[in-house]
């Protein structure tokens, strides 16, 4: 059996904001096509970990190896790494002054310098895939939260990333809109996208995740397959956390 390629390897990652030690000796790997779900209480460092992976935050110590390559923020071009690692935010962060289509073609045309006509064609395919082909010419302010998040997913996919990071993609949504975004993410997982997802949607974690990672106070306390972690948590902290949210 051939081992799947390692997409992300994090070793002894430490990160502080001033005196606040937020990530403590994090070790963490994600293999190709794996879906890893990060859970944990608010403030436990999930977002910071995710943001370290695409260098929105810079680590203090340790290793971050993306697709076999370690990047030095001082010497290397972070924009190159970020093109390979797409990110979806809790608050969508769509560009409000651009239409849906313009949001999606912005990075391919500006960063990859792809011809506009080709970018538009690819964007339309992506919008079709997330079920928003008919919204191409609307501005984000006209969309529902669920639609906005699906545009944000299409926008990230337009760069053809190898890895997608999701930071609580459904937390800002009205409950009835959560399903459509999760469905899009499931679709993506099924196609083999490597994904790291911070979420409180335990149903999604159970169904889609290959691995669930529980974080507490800047450390990874426990990780395992969903049924193992949810049904037979080994650590007391994990048990407490799970019973607090269920």
């Amino acid at each position: 059996m051939s081992e799947a390629r390692e997409m992300i390897r994090v070793e002894k990652l430490n990160k502080s904001f001033g005196d606040l030690h937020v990530l403590k000796d994090i070790d963490f790997t994600v293999k190709e096509s794996e879906v890893v779900v990060l859970i944990g209480a608010s403030g436990s460092g999930k977002s910071t970990l995710l943001r370290c992976l695409n260098y929105l935050e810079l680590k203090n110590d340790g290793k971050i190896i993306i697709e076999g390559k370690e990047t030095d923020p001082k010497k290397d071009d972070l924009n190159k790494v970020r093109q390979k690692v797409g990110m979806v935010f809790q608050h969508f962060n769509l560009f409000p002054h651009k239409t849906v289509l313009e949001n999606v073609i912005e990075a391919p045309t500006q960063v990859k310098k792809i011809k506009k006509s080709q970018a538009i064609e690819e964007a339309k395919t992506l919008l079709d895939k997330v079920g928003l082909a008919d919204k191409a010419d609307d501005y984000p302010s006209r969309l529902s939260g669920g639609q906005k998040q699906r545009v944000a997913i299409a926008r990230a996919l337009a760069m053809k990333p190898d890895i997608m990071l999701f930071d609580e993609p459904t937390s800002a949504l009205d409950p009835e809109l959560v399903g459509e975004v999760l469905a899009t993410m499931k679709e993506l997982a099924k196609e083999g996208m490597t994904m790291v997802v911070v979420t409180h949607e335990m149903g999604f974690a159970r169904e889609v995740a290959d691995k669930v990672v529980y974080m507490h106070d800047g450390r990874i306390v426990e990780e395992g397959e969903p049924h193992q972690l949810f049904d037979h948590p080994q650590e007391q902290r994990t048990q407490e956390f799970l019973s607090s949210i269920l």
């Binding site: 970020r82 990110m87 960063v111 990230a156 760069m159």
Partner: peptide, 17 residues
């Protein structure tokens, strides 16, 4: 909001873009 900057940067756009 700084989310706009982060969205741009996370797509691989550089600071000036």
């Amino acid at each position: 909001g700084k989310g706009q900057n982060e969205a741009g940067r996370s797509l691989g756009m550089n600071r000036s873009q």
